[in-house]
Amino acid sequence: MLTFYHYPMSPNSRRVWIALLEKELPFEEVVLQLNGDQLQPEFLEISPFHHIPALVDDGFSLVESQAILDYLEAKYPTPSLRPTEPKALGIVQMVRMATINELAPAMSPMVSQMMGMRTPEPEKLEESKQKLAVVLKFFEGLLEGKSYFGGDSLSLADITAGVSIPWLPQLGMPLDDYPQVIAWRDRVQSRPSWETTKPTPEMIAQLKALMQARMAKAKN
Rank of each mutant, 00 (worst) to 15 (best):
K75V: 10
M215Y: 10
A67Y: 05
Q93S: 10
L142W: 09
E42L: 01
M173R: 00
G141F: 09
M94P: 00
I68S: 06
M117L: 02
E121N: 11
M173K: 10
P122K: 01
G90A: 15
A209W: 10
W167K: 02
P86Q: 00
A216N: 14
G151W: 06
E102C: 02
Q206V: 03
V111Y: 13
S47V: 03
M1L: 07
A209N: 14
E102Y: 11
L89N: 07
P41Y: 08
L168T: 04
E64F: 12
L207D: 06
P105C: 04
L34D: 08
P53I: 00
V134E: 11
Q130F: 09
S193A: 15
P201E: 09
I182G: 03
E42F: 11
P86F: 08
F43D: 07
E45L: 13
L210M: 14
V56T: 06
G90M: 10
S65D: 06
L154W: 09
I91T: 12
W17H: 14
Q93L: 15
K137D: 15
Q212C: 04
P179L: 01
R96Y: 13
W17R: 06
E123Q: 13
L125P: 04
M117K: 05
Q113S: 07
K129H: 15
G90P: 03
Q38Y: 12
A104I: 07
N12Y: 15
F60I: 00
K146C: 03
S80N: 03
L156G: 09
I46K: 10
D186L: 07
M211I: 02
P199H: 13
G150V: 01
R214F: 10
P120S: 05
I182E: 11
P77S: 05
W167G: 00
L25H: 12
L210F: 11
E127P: 00
Q40V: 02
P79Y: 04
S13V: 01
Q170W: 13
R82Y: 11
E102R: 07
A54Q: 05
A74M: 05
K129C: 13
F149W: 03
S164A: 14
I52P: 01
P192F: 14
L103C: 10
T160Y: 15
D186R: 09
T84E: 14
